[in-house]
Design a binder for these strands. Structure first.
Lengths: 196, 196
DNA sequence: CTCTCTTGCAAGTGACTGCTAACATGTCGG
DNA sequence: CCGACATGTTAGCAGTCACTTGCAAGAGAG
């Protein structure tokens, strides 16, 4: 019913799509559901995106922007590097509840290995996050706050692997898992490893 | 054409299903594809499994058996605990190429959060692997080979998170990732952390 | 006020989905 | 060698999929 200018509708569509794709997966989400969630009909969806896949890729790219912007804001307030490293761990998007919802979209894309274009978008996204982490870790090291001898590239991958794994298992509610809210134990363990 | 006894056909169906589900995802794989891959028609598939979902759950359970059996074989040959810990890391199913194929099925299930029964099967599987790891880590500790002070439960989760994350990112072929075959750098880093 | 351009919708497209009923055929114990 | 039962197939069900065609209607510019 309510008419929206094209740009707003597009953003709203991506918002709703994020939730649906996170919940049902890429293949499991229908264009009818996507349209309905945005309060429109399917032809409108196809006016904004060439295809369901096109929408999904746009969502992946936007998610990358959001995550990096979020990190930069957090790190901006962090003051000194010891605190910053903790934020790098805790701010890893899949560790917070907020981030996890967003990030399930990425994981859905990660498992969609059959589609070349989607794979390319995910690869872009992962490489981007990794580069950002490496830069931050290098800075922390030259300022003397990080004593780990390991390769910053490797540390960054380690962080990403952990965050991905944690974020995948946490929502299952396996009894012994995440006894602590937001994976605090793991953060402590890693902090000890990385900052000596 | 070739007639097979029910038990063999069932196993063969699960074999083919593992590859298809890993490649196309649960929702993305059709029963027609599953049947064709096994060289039969759909009604035969439904004689062995009540539904597509039922087949998927059977596959998850069988995968759990396979993984734990594989671990036990490897650990049996390991001799002493220092070597054993390295195997626990290296034998983590998503780190080897062979295991990764199998394990993508689990990840597919992990993202299929909308289906209660599938979630339950995945939860069962994850809890089982975790319990196995915890037992081994405890043994390694009492025999004095593992000096890490951290909670064995936590270490086991750490291993699983890492393996999951690594196994998800590795097949993407992101330039800096897995420069070393089979994640050797990460193993070294972890070995240092866990065995002092 | 009206012209025009954008935003919206109802109704359908053929192809494909998971799944089934009804019938055929190979194989093995007696 | 034959009857019986397990293993197989053909043809098709109703429902859903991603995507389209053709037409209505709100709103800003002149």
């Amino acid at each position: 019913m309510s008419r929206l200018p094209a740009a707003k509708r597009r953003e709203q569509l991506l918002d709703k799509a994020a939730k649906l794709f996170a919940k049902r997966g890429y293949a499991g989400t229908t264009t009818a559901q996507l349209a309905k969630a945005a309060g429109i009909t399917e032809p409108i969806l196809y006016r904004h995106f060439d295809s369901k896949r096109d929408l999904f890729i746009a969502l992946i790219d936007r998610t990358g922007d959001d995550v990096i912007r979020g990190w930069e804001e957090q790190l901006g307030e962090a003051g000194s590097s010891a605190h910053e490293i903790r934020l790098l761990l805790g701010g890893n998007p899949m560790i917070s509840d907020r981030g996890r919802g967003i990030y399930r979209v990425i994981v859905q894309g990660l498992t969609e290995i059959d589609d070349r274009e989607i794979r390319k978008a995910i690869k872009r996204h992962i490489a981007r996050l990794h580069a950002f982490l490496v830069k931050r870790i290098r800075e922390a090291r030259t300022s003397g706050q990080l004593v780990a001898r390991a390769d910053p590239e490797l540390i960054a991958w380690l962080l990403m692997h952990l965050a991905l794994g944690y974020g995948l298992i946490a929502p299952l509610g396996v009894p012994g898992h995440s006894k602590d809210a937001s994976g605090d134990h793991i953060l402590r363990l890693l902090s000890r490893l990385l900052t000596g």
